[in-house]
């Protein structure tokens, strides 16, 4: 064996040696993972695709809307920006029928129908345009349950998602939101946001993980129904199979997970 050959063999065997080591390493890592590391809370509410059904007939007074919106905004420390309406942050809000369902305009439509307030929020689309355009995966659809999430740690504030969302569901922090919150009103268990990131409804992922229903659903007195769209026995599926429902702008192919009952 000459020097050259020796080096060759030594090189090859060391590659195998290293390979073996890493293989052992991953195996070891996997074994350990079963004991330490992250896992889901056994009490967490689970679904294949979460959906929200809004029973518009049960929203009769302004108070009915306010209860849900306040519950949401309080739970998530959503600032109440009034000095410049252009910089508003909204996770859940109301608009009138003709604006929630644009394109239905009809001059003979009863004024009270046109002006009927409706609850609006992120639709948690099955085919979300915002997720498609995000350059950092800061907004993404959770594979486990279809929630369209926001990772505020990662958002670079390019606002492409706001241009892409056909529902106007996203808000951008044009300034530091903290001064718009009273300390005593803040939910100490949930963060606020910083300036320069986009935010929106997250279907209360933090509450679902603890086995709680979304804050708005809890506050709605049964006007909001939350459940698994892919479970044929779920309450949402039962209602959808019985009653007349609409989704916002279905022609765009985004497949919203928020339904409106009339």
């Amino acid at each position: 064996m000459d020097r050259r050959e020796f080096i060759k063999i030594a090189g090859i065997s060391s590659i195998f040696g290293l390979g073996g080591l890493t293989a052992f390493g991953t195996l070891k890592g996997k074994l350990e993972a079963s004991q330490t590391g992250p896992s889901q809370n056994p009490q967490a509410l689970k679904a294949k695709r979460w959906a929200l059904v809004i029973d518009t007939t049960k929203f009769k007074t302004e108070e009915d809307f306010k209860r849900c919106i306040d519950a949401c905004h309080k739970a998530h420390n959503v600032p109440h920006i009034t000095d410049n309406i252009k910089h508003e942050i909204k996770w859940m809000w109301t608009d009138t029928y003709e604006h929630v369902f644009p394109g239905v305009e009809d001059e003979y439509l009863a004024e009270k129908v046109k002006e009927m307030p409706m609850l609006v929020l992120c639709n948690h689309c099955d085919n979300p345009a915002c997720v498609r355009v995000c350059p950092t995966k800061a907004t993404f659809k959770r594979k486990s349950d279809g929630i369209v999430m926001m990772d505020m740690h990662r958002c670079i504030g390019c606002r492409f998602c706001m241009a892409a969302c056909p529902y106007g569901a996203r808000s951008f922090n044009y300034k530091d939101p903290r001064p718009y919150m009273k300390e005593e009103d803040m939910n100490p268990e949930f963060p606020t946001r910083m300036k320069g990131v986009v935010e929106k409804c997250t279907f209360c992922y933090e509450r679902l993980a603890k086995g709680l229903m979304p804050a708005c659903v809890e506050a709605s007195n049964g006007a909001l129904i939350f459940g698994d769209l892919e479970d044929p026995n779920s309450e949402v599926r039962k209602i959808l199979s019985e009653r007349h429902s609409y989704r916002r702008r279905p022609e765009l192919g985004t497949r919203p997970s928020v339904y409106y009952l009339f």
Partner: peptide, 25 residues
């Protein structure tokens, strides 16, 4: 933060076997 925000996993089992909710706050 990645486990909680991105993967929906909220419980951390430490090397001593004890379980914690993963949350800074």
């Amino acid at each position: 933060r990645d486990w909680v925000v991105r993967d929906g996993l909220t419980i951390y089992t430490s090397s001593s076997g004890k379980q914690y909710t993963m949350s800074l706050q």
